[in-house]
């Protein structure tokens, strides 16, 4: 809430403004509460349902402990597949993102007829979540890691291209102007003016997307797109919660380890 500025209250004295502000605030909160209640009614969410559901949840968590340690050898191969999907998907997406990022940046592509449609396409690609991509590609190419890889390719393409074109727009124009002045062509300007400045950012975004993709890849299997998720789906379907918790545990360890390594590399880069 803005404090009443003295002198500005010629039309309405400050105290009336204050009261009006208070009414506005109360109205906003009332609106929020009404929306909340209406939404809850629409999806039949009741506290009663939660109360009866929670004990079931508790027994489920109880069944998850202890995890089934003997299951580790079986899940090793799918875990590796998960990492492979993430690596290949992120890499191909990142490679695809480079030309698009150059076409999107206003300082590289002054022609608005190219850069603006490119940006619109990029925004549309980014609206579709990874699992939707995965379920569509599974229907197209069949169950397996290939569909998951394609899903991550498009997903990471959207993220990396967006972040990279923003950092390309923020680079120092000095070297580019100097190169243009001595007669370098467009390709040379990009090679020796843009790439050295934008490359560390690109690698950093690439690694960040890789971290996101490892998490995504671990659940892609739930829709059949390869990786550890397929086993998770199976063990949940067979009510083997001890196995499911083992899978979740291993996935957490892998995700944390990769996060740690990637954060260290990113820190040394920037």
């Amino acid at each position: 809430m803005k404090p009443a500025v003295p002198g500005s209250g010629r039309k309405s004295p400050p105290d009336i403004q204050l009261i009006r502000g208070r009414y506005k605030r109360i109205a906003t909160w009332l609106l929020i509460i009404v929306v909340f209640i209406l939404c809850s009614i629409h999806i039949h969410a009741t506290p009663y349902k939660l109360m009866t559901g929670l004990p079931q949840m508790g027994s489920l968590l109880q069944e998850m402990i202890p995890p089934d340690w003997s299951y580790i050898p079986t899940i090793w191969q799918p875990i590796m597949e998960t990492i492979q999907i993430a690596i290949v998907g992120t890499t191909l997406g990142g490679i695809l993102a480079i030309p698009v990022a150059l076409l999107c940046a206003y300082n590289m592509m002054p022609n608005k007829w190219v850069s603006i449609p490119m940006r619109v396409i990029l925004n549309l690609v980014r609206t579709i979540p990874d699992l939707l991509f995965a379920s569509i590609f599974v229907a197209m190419f069949g169950i397996g890691p290939f569909a998951g890889m394609l899903a991550l390719l498009f997903f990471s393409f959207g993220i990396i291209a967006k972040l990279t074109f923003e950092s390309i727009e923020a680079i120092d124009p000095g070297p580019l102007e100097a190169m243009t002045a001595v007669g370098a062509n467009r390709l040379q300007v990009i090679m020796f003016g843009v790439v050295p400045q934008a490359f560390p950012y690109f690698v950093s975004y690439f690694l960040y997307t890789f971290e996101v993709n490892i998490r995504a890849a671990s659940v892609l299997g739930l829709v059949g797109a390869g990786g550890i998720g397929i086993l998770l789906d199976r063990s949940l379907g067979l009510f083997r919660y001890d196995r499911a918790s083992m899978i979740i545990l291993i996935t957490l360890v892998i995700v944390l380890a990769i996060d740690y390594g990637s954060t260290r590399i990113r820190r040394s880069l920037l």
Binding site: H44, A45, L50, G53, M57, L60, V219, L222, L252
Partner: peptide, 28 residues
């Protein structure tokens, strides 16, 4: 950070087992 590394889809599956399939599980 432990809560953050759990993918929401897995949390959703756990809640489906608890309160049944439907929008309420998604909300939780």
């Amino acid at each position: 950070s432990v809560i953050r590394v759990f993918p929401e889809i897995i949390v959703a599956i756990l809640f489906i087992k608890a309160v049944g399939p439907g929008a309420f599980a998604g909300v939780l």
